[in-house]
Amino acid sequence: MIIYLAISIMFFIGIYGMMAKKNIIKMIIGVNIIGYAVNLFFIVLGYKNNGIQPILVPGVSIEEFVEKAVNPIPQALVLTSIVIDLSTICFLAALSIRIYEKYGTFDLEKIRRLKG
């Protein structure tokens, strides 16, 4: 129960970092932290108390494996989710380099040429 509370605190720290900061680099770090919190939530979903790893090595019997192994499906989903978040962060970093070239600053208050 405590672990879910800690994950939600991490999620809200990420949202605070994304919305309340004015520097683009700090916003990108906030996006990163949101990604970490959601991935951690997925992994913790499949946990069992006193569980063993879900890998069949030659010394483990089938009944003990079925009864005590941790759920491996969320681990496969997290791999995909990490790749997607990595691509988004990489694109945002490249975009902020180009924005620095055009505007000369990383401050979000001065990057407001569009209105209406």
Partner: peptide
């Protein structure tokens, strides 16, 4: 102007996808 529009679009689209992912979780 296109760079600024894309920055705004990326951040808001990422939040939408994250909400869907939490629902699936």
């Amino acid at each position: 102007e296109e760079l600024e529009a894309s920055l705004k679009y990326t951040m808001i689209g990422f939040i939408g996808s994250t909400l869907i992912l939490i629902g699936i979780g």
